[in-house]
């Protein structure tokens, strides 16, 4: 049975943050997960590779990238939107 997008994004975040998937809550911020700037860049790379999408992200100005990184839930929603846009 294939995982949902939500489950896959959480699994990627958990792996990067070296946490159990049960410790990655939807309302958590990346800082709360302990992800630094390099961890974020690796996370976005992993998401792009998993879903075959291009995430608009510039480390110089994450807020202006058009990809909402404010919480786990917002990242899942943004990934879902990018996958929908590709279809």
């Amino acid at each position: 049975m294939s995982q949902s997008i939500q489950e896959q994004v959480i699994a990627i975040l958990a792996e990067q943050a070296v946490l159990d998937v049960s410790d990655v809550s939807l309302d958590a911020t990346l800082a709360a997960l302990g992800l630094d700037s390099l961890g974020l860049v690796e996370t976005i790379f992993a998401i792009e590779e998993r879903f075959d999408i291009s995430v608009p992200f510039n480390a110089n100005d994450p807020a202006q990238s058009g990809f909402d990184l404010s919480s786990v839930a917002s990242i899942i929603a943004a990934v879902q939107a990018l996958i929908a846009a590709k279809a």
Binding site: V41, I44, F57, N58, A59, N60, D61, Q64
Partner: peptide, 17 residues
């Protein structure tokens, strides 16, 4: 993810890489 897609603007508030 540190490169600018549109120009090098050192010390400018709208710099982006």
């Amino acid at each position: 993810r540190v490169m600018s897609p549109d120009g090098c603007r050192p010390f400018s508030a709208n710099r982006n890489g």
